[in-house]
Amino acid sequence: MNIPAGQPPQHPMSNRMQIFVAVKVRIPNNEPALRLKTCWVCETRGQNTPNAPSAGVEMRKSGVRQGIGLRHWLVRQDEGMFEQFVESNVDVRDSQLFVRVGGEGPPVLLLHGHPRTSATWHRVAPRLVEAGFQVVCPDLRGYGRSSKPEPTPDHSAHSKRATAQDMLGLMNHLGHEQFALAGHDRGSYSALRLALDYPSAVSKLALLDCIPISEHLARANASFATNWWHWFFYAQPEIPERVITADPDSWYQGDPAIMGQENYNEWRQAVRNPETIRAMLEDYRAGLTIDREHEEADRTAEKTLQMPLLVLWSLRDDLEMLYGNPLDIWKDWASDLRGHGVDSRHHMAEEAPDELATTLINFF
């Protein structure tokens, strides 16, 4: 029987029910874990067939709710994002991070931007796995399903340094002392901070749609203020929370046709959470204050990136319009530098996944 993905099986002689299937997997530290997947099962009557599950999953009869005496099981796991990835919650420092991990091989850490979650990588991460990497996709602190720290007066709880420490702790927890790293948008600032603070941990660094926060602010003319006004609006106390929570769907304007339905659903659930909105705004407030101070201290100390750096920017976004070739700015931050534009709007992992994945594979 051909069972379409995401639909229950149809059979004229069967009763239908939804069950949970326990799938035995292994997480990177080799501790056994069970992941629950929603599936559909058919009870086929009048056939003397063995009780054999399909699709190579381990079926537990104790997981079936209702129905006794099943004689034949027809199973199709719902196909969707990150099918070969393990999802878990990891306690790191003062945070609990939601993380997806897939594949075996050299580790790669992917950091999403605003207002996305780790699901934004759903078209890129599997390609990296196929190329022989182990891929780690967390929700940043405050975002998605990761914990939401209480704001602090100096915004340090949402600083890029705090996020960088989270990410280093996560990768150490997974058994990786060194790893390749890519970050997009707000995630790129956390990736930059991690590479500056812990250079021995990062083998190669890819920054997407990014120049340092301090470089943006040093060039903050009327064009920047007009195009990136949201930086300064988000920095205001309380007002952005009231405006955005009134109608987050209209404010953020996601599109399932572009994002992919499951990615869109996950994103939409996240941005409807007032605690997530507050945490994302704190990310921006930290950017204009403590994060800027950290970057300016690095420049005063003449600290630069020690690892190879790849810079990619979306050609249908405004980074090149504002600054010309971003590599000209990065020359003061890294000596081993390369990069180019990508034919995409801002969210290149969703809109240009093939080009992005190929470029990252070749670089890493």
Rank of each mutant, 00 (worst) to 15 (best):
Trp229Gln: 12
Glu275Phe: 05
Asp255Arg: 13
Gln261Trp: 01
His158Asp: 07
Met17Gln: 14
Glu320Asn: 04
Ala352Trp: 03
His155Gln: 12
Val57Arg: 03
Arg299Glu: 14
Leu360Asn: 01
Asn48Trp: 10
Leu281Pro: 01
Gly103Tyr: 09
Ala5His: 15
Thr300Glu: 15
Pro151Met: 09
Glu31Ser: 14
Phe233Ala: 14
Ser214Phe: 11
Val25Gln: 06
Leu309Pro: 04
Gln47Thr: 15
Ser200Ala: 14
Gly254Ile: 00
Gln269Val: 00
Ser314Cys: 12
Leu312Thr: 01
Lys331Leu: 04
Ala164Met: 08
Gly103Cys: 10
Ala286Asn: 07
Met81His: 02
Asp139Phe: 07
Asn221Gly: 15
His216Ser: 05
Arg278His: 10
Trp229Asp: 12
Asn265Ala: 00
Val21His: 03
Ala182Trp: 00
Asp291Gln: 08
Arg127Gln: 15
Arg338Pro: 00
His176Asn: 12
His112Gly: 10
Arg76Met: 11
Thr276Asn: 11
Met171Asn: 07
Ile277Asn: 04
Pro248Asp: 10
Pro8Ser: 13
Arg145Phe: 04
Val135Trp: 00
Ser314Pro: 10
Ala55Tyr: 05
Leu208Phe: 09
Ala279Pro: 00
Ala157Gly: 05
Trp73Asp: 03
Ala225His: 13
Arg292Thr: 15
Glu282Arg: 05
Ala191Arg: 01
Ala334Lys: 02
Pro153Tyr: 05
Leu36Thr: 06
Glu150Cys: 06
Arg299Ile: 14
His173Pro: 05
Leu288Gln: 10
Asp318Ala: 07
Leu109Cys: 08
Leu309Ile: 06
Gly175Leu: 11
Glu302Met: 12
Ala22Ile: 00
Lys331Phe: 03
Arg127Cys: 08
Gly341Gln: 12
Phe133Cys: 07
Glu177Asn: 13
His11Leu: 14
Ser190His: 03
Ala301Pro: 06
Asn15Met: 15
Asn89Ala: 04
Phe133Lys: 01
Ala246Pro: 02
Leu205Cys: 06
Ala131Ser: 14
Thr289Val: 07
Val271Asp: 00
His184Ile: 10
Gly341Pro: 08
Leu97Thr: 05
Glu293Ala: 15
Ala222Asn: 12
Asp154Pro: 08
Ala164Arg: 02
Val64Met: 13
Met13Cys: 11
Ile290Gln: 06
Arg123Lys: 15
